[in-house]
C-alpha cells in the first residue's frame, strides 16, 4: 500500500511539473514570466524562497521515508518495546540554528527589495498617473497632460510610471501580474507604486480585492508601447476635439442620442477629470467592452441594452431610460468610431 502511496505521489508531482513547465499560464497574465521591474523583483524572491523551502522539504521527506520504511513494525515484533529516547541536544540545536540562518538568507534580500519598491522619492521626475478604482472599472488621469482614459492604461516601455491610487467606493487592488505585484486601492488614502514594463505588450490587469458581485469582471489592461509611440499617443490624445462630428450618418445619430439620453452626465469624452463613469475618449481603440467582452459592435449593443446581465451590480444599470436596439446600435456606432490616435493596442503587438 505504501508503494501505491509513493507512486501516486510521484505521478502527482510529475503531472504538476509538466503542467508547470509546459504552461506557466497566459504570457501576458502570468506572474511566472515577469516582464516588468516589480514582477521581476517579486520573482527573484519567489525563486529564492522556493529553492530554500524545497530544500527543506526534501530533507524532511528523506528522514520521513527512511523512518517509515526502517521502523515500521514487522511481523513478530508485536512485543518489541523501542528505547524511550527523551531527546538529543545536538540534533535539536542543529534544527534550530539552521532555520534561523535560512530565515536570514531570505530576510535580508526581502527587506532590501521592500525598500527599493517603496522608494517614491523620484516620483516628480517621472510620468505620474492618478488611478481611481471604481465598482467595477478603472479611471486613469495623466498628471499634467490633460489626458484621461479608463480601462486601458498606456505607458511607455523602459520607464518608471508612478501610479497614485485611490478608490471612490470600496477597497480594490491593482494587479498586473506580468509587470508588477499588487497594491491596494483604498478609499481613505493615496497609495503610490511604480510600474515599469520591459517589453511592449498588452498586459492583463485584475482587481485583487473583493469589491462586490462583479469583482471578477473588473479587468483592465496596461498597454506598454515604445517611448516614441507613447509621445505620439499623448499628442494625439491632447488634440482630441470632443465636439467633432462623426462622418457616418448612423454615428451622427448615435452622437445625438448620446447627448439626448444625457450619457455625458457620467461619461466624459475629452480630458474632463470627472469620473462618475468611464471616460470614452478613445473608446474605439479599447481592447474590450466593459473590461471583459470582445470589442465588437454586438457586444457593445448588448452592454448598452442590459449591462446588469453582463456585470451584476454595476452602477450603469438603471441610470438612463430604456433604449431600443436600434438606438443602442447607433450609439455603439458612434462610440466605436472614437479613435483619436494612430497608437492602438496593435502598436503594442496585440
Amino acid at each position: 500500500m505504501k508503494g501505491w502511496m509513493g507512486k501516486t505521489k510521484a505521478l502527482l508531482l510529475f503531472t504538476m511539473l509538466t503542467l508547470f513547465l509546459t504552461a506557466c499560464g497566459k504570457e501576458n497574465l502570468t506572474a511566472l514570466a515577469p516582464k516588468g521591474y516589480g514582477a521581476e523583483s517579486s520573482m527573484n524572491l519567489i525563486i529564492l524562497t522556493t529553492l530554500i523551502m524545497v530544500g527543506v522539504f526534501v530533507v524532511v521527506m528523506i528522514i520521513y521515508v527512511i523512518a517509515l520504511v526502517r521502523f515500521r513494525r514487522k511481523k513478530g515484533q508485536e512485543d518489541y518495546i523501542p528505547k524511550q529516547v527523551e531527546g538529543n541536544h545536538t540534533l535539536e540545536t542543529v534544527w534550530t540554528i539552521i532555520p534561523i540562518v535560512l530565515v536570514l538568507i531570505m530576510g535580508v534580500p526581502t527587506v532590501i527589495a521592500t525598500f527599493d519598491l517603496a522608494d517614491t522619492s523620484n516620483a516628480s521626475e517621472h510620468l505620474n498617473v492618478e488611478v481611481t478604482g471604481n465598482q467595477y472599472w478603472w479611471h486613469f488621469n495623466y498628471d499634467g497632460e490633460e489626458i484621461v482614459t479608463s480601462q486601458d492604461l498606456y505607458i511607455p516601455t523602459g520607464e518608471r510610471v508612478y501610479l497614485n491610487m485611490m478608490s471612490s467606493d470600496v477597497i480594490h487592488s491593482f494587479w498586473v501580474p506580468t509587470i508588477s505585484g499588487k497594491m491596494d486601492v483604498n478609499p481613505e488614502n493615496v497609495n503610490t507604486m511604480y510600474i515599469e514594463a520591459y517589453e511592449e505588450g498588452v498586459y492583463w490587469g485584475k482587481c485583487a480585492e473583493l469589491c462586490g458581485p462583479s469583482h471578477s469582471l473588473m479587468d483592465f489592461k496596461v498597454i506598454a508601447v515604445s517611448p516614441e509611440e507613447f509621445d505620439q499617443w499623448v499628442s494625439d490624445m491632447q488634440a482630441v476635439d470632443p465636439e467633432e462630428e462623426p462622418q457616418d450618418t448612423v454615428a451622427q445619430e448615435g452622437k445625438e442620442l448620446f447627448e439626448a439620453n444625457n450619457c455625458m452626465a457620467c461619461h466624459a469624452i475629452g480630458s474632463s477629470p470627472a469620473a462618475i463613469g468611464p471616460n470614452l475618449t478613445n473608446f474605439g481603440d479599447r481592447t474590450t467592452v466593459a473590461g471583459i467582452l470582445e470589442p465588437t459592435k454586438e457586444n457593445l449593443v448588448d452592454w448598452i441594452m442590459d449591462p446588469e446581465s453582463i456585470k451584476p451590480g454595476n452602477k450603469m444599470t438603471g441610470a438612463y431610460p430604456s433604449i431600443s436596439e436600434e438606438e443602442a446600435n447607433s450609439i455603439a456606432e458612434y462610440l466605436l468610431q472614437l479613435k483619436p490616435s494612430e497608437i492602438t493596442p496593435e502598436s503594442a503587438g496585440n
Binding site: 514582477a39 517579486s42 526581502t110 521592500t114 519598491l117 505585484g181 499588487k182 485583487a208
Partner: peptide
C-alpha cells in the same frame, strides 16, 4: 517574504 507576497496576495 512581502515582496514575493505582492504577487501571491
Amino acid at each position: 517574504s512581502n515582496v514575493a507576497d505582492y504577487q501571491y496576495h
